[in-house]
Write a protein that binds this DNA or RNA. Structure first.
Length: 576
DNA sequence: GCCGTTTTCGGCCCGACTGTTTTCAGTCG
């Protein structure tokens, strides 16, 4: 059973947590956290890197000690350092640490003074009034903990970004309408375009911090106020979303916008860079001694530190600063406006809600140069998949419709099921009649990694295969990704000369940013597809473009930025 | 524990809010 990066990162995170409760040196604790984060963000499995003979010490944040522990975990499945800690501190203390208001010091006190192991025991103690006499605790702390434990709403998952968008826009409109507000923007992971957001970070430019904060906490949808200060306030909305608001003055806005756009890794790296240059960077500006040398806009902040502007989607601490220094940043990231059509869409012929004509109309309205019709194949009976006969009928219907819509190319395709043995769900003589074949897995999600990978590799080898749709078949917060050796699939796509999809449905966004980056590095082009089941869903392309930007994709990496003739040429190389 | 164009020691990102501590520690992002 291979041990994945996430599991190793989790072990280091727990080590950090327990060491911190144990009162270990703060920087030692941070080293484990940095290591965990670095591992989590790796685009390759550590086990793969070791097989290739890579030296783990070369990875950022991994030194001799952590490398040794990684070897041990991969070899034995255990970590003796963590086992040793567990003799003194139970695993369940990490649950206490996860509670808001409890950090390592208080958990240490709870465990050693009252022998409290987990949230349940804490609940009893708080209810019995045993907490407020402990050092570092008071009546108010006890009350708040009790309140939180009683109304413990688990916020198990992060909200899908597309869903959060509505809340962000409404809140920004509310803030912008306030007389004291000169400017209001969203920052944080929302601005970086992450597929999900944990909380919202909003930034306001105003000289009247207290006034803005008062209006903010009085917002209609606020359920509870977490903090309420002149510069910084936090609330929880009724939908469970936490919103943090910062208020700054104009000459500081750019620095603050940069600071709160993050992410943490990016910020830490940039602050370290500032320090290296004898400067200081904080949310108020870039400082040379007492003097502020930049701060009113982001460009200025980057420039003061010797960098070109770096797009928010790239600010993930994944080597963007190094790339900027080396002149290797993307020239221009792809955007929704670059997309000339969606290559994976459905109609009423299978499980779509729009007719063929309505889908084409919608594409014309959006100014697209082409649209591919790719209804499901016969195996997917639940989606009214098309057998050979119906597909051939549909091709004739498309021919007739094409005559009436000379302004757009209607590409003939099919989303063909990849059967469990890797064969295609329609006969070759039918597939040969199409402009493109979009292959997809819709069954047997639970196959083990090797088998699932072989299945897809075999499908990609078939004579007609253009695009691998939603490769991981994941649904964010709902269905885990398939177990796949994606590196092998990317290599195979390159050799075969076919393409990988970035499915733009907000719940899918599959491939994700890391794998898009891998595809880019491997020279495999991507199709950003709406997978529209309704005419309006063609607008999902926007979400896909955002995800593509996070994968460092430029227009040249995306096949559906190409004009029709170039696209046709690319697709032809995949068809027979 | 990691790291190095201040390299094998001595640093390590920075500030706001809260509660309780009356001058600051803990927590959070």
């Amino acid at each position: 059973m291979p041990i994945h990066n996430a599991e190793i990162a989790a072990i280091f995170d727990e080590l950090a947590d327990l060491l911190e409760v144990d009162g270990a040196d703060f920087y030692r604790v941070r080293a484990y956290r940095n290591g965990a984060r670095s591992i989590h963000d790796l685009p390759h499995e550590l086990s793969t890197l070791l097989e290739r003979g890579e030296d783990l010490v070369k990875l950022p944040g991994i030194g001799k000690e952590l490398a040794k522990k990684i070897h041990e975990i991969l070899d034995t499945g255990r970590c003796t350092a963590l086992d040793r800690l567990h003799r003194r501190l139970p695993h369940s203390l990490t649950e206490l640490l996860a509670l808001p208001g409890l950090g390592p010091k208080r958990v240490h006190t709870l465990y050693h003074e009252l022998h409290i192991h987990d949230p349940k025991e804490l609940h009893h103690a708080a209810a019995a009034g045993e907490l407020h006499r402990l050092p570092g605790f008071g009546r108010k702390t006890e009350e708040q903990l009790l309140e939180r434990l009683e109304h413990r709403v688990d916020h198990p998952h992060r909200m899908i970004r597309a869903e959060a968008e509505g809340y962000v826009e409404a809140l920004l409109a509310y803030l912008r309408a306030l007389p004291a507000v000169e400017r209001a923007e969203a920052a944080g992971s929302f601005r970086r375009g992450r597929e999900t957001v944990g909380d919202l970070d909003l930034l306001v430019q105003s000289a009247e911090g207290a006034q803005v904060a008062d209006a903010f906490v009085a917002y209609d949808e606020v359920e509870s106020v977490i903090a309420h200060g002149r510069r910084k306030s936090s609330v929880r909305l009724r939908n469970g979303l936490q919103v943090d608001l910062r208020v700054v003055s104009g000459e500081r806005f750019g620095a603050a916008l940069h600071y709160f756009t993050g992410n943490r890794g990016h910020n830490v790296a940039l602050r370290r860079e500032a320090q290296r240059r004898g400067l200081k960077l904080n949310e108020y500006g870039v400082f040379d001694g007492e003097e502020r040398i930049a701060g009113s806009d982001e460009n200025e902040v980057f420039a003061a530190l010797g960098y070109p502007y770096i797009e928010p989607e790239l600010r993930e601490g994944r080597g963007e600063l190094e790339a900027a220094h080396a002149g290797l940043l993307p020239q221009r990231l792809v955007s929704a406006e670059d997309l000339k059509g969606s290559l994976h869409n459905h109609t009423r012929w299978s499980d779509g809600r729009g007719t063929l004509e309505e889908m084409v109309e919608a594409a014309v309205e959006r100014g697209h140069a082409y649209i591919a019709i790719t209804d499901h194949s016969q195996r997917l009976t639940i989606a009214n998949g098309l057998d050979s006969r119906r597909l051939l009928e549909q091709l004739e219907a498309i021919d007739r419709l094409q005559e009436r819509y000379p302004q757009i190319a209607i590409l003939k395709g099919s989303e063909v099921d990849i059967l469990e043995d890797g064969s295609m769900d329609l006969p070759e003589e039918v597939l040969a009649r199409l402009d493109l074949v979009v292959g997809a897995v819709h069954t047997a999600f639970e196959l083990p990694r090797a088998k699932q990978t072989r299945r897809i590799l075999r499908a990609m080898e078939s004579r007609y295969f253009s695009i691998l749709a939603h490769p991981f078949q994941r649904m964010i917060n709902e269905r885990p990704p398939l177990e796949l050796d994606i590196e092998r699939i990317i290599r195979a796509a390159r050799e075969r000369g076919c393409f990988l999809e970035l499915n733009a449905t907000p719940k899918r966004l599959d491939l994700d940013d890391r794998y898009l980056y891998m595809a880019r590095e491997a020279g495999v082009m991507v199709a950003i597809d709406a997978d529209a089941h309704h005419p309006l869903q063609l607008d999902h392309l926007r979400h896909g473009a955002l995800q593509a930007r996070r994968g460092w994709l430029e227009p040249r990496h995306v096949i559906n930025t190409r004009p029709l003739d170039e696209l046709r040429a690319l697709l032809r190389t995949t068809m027979g």
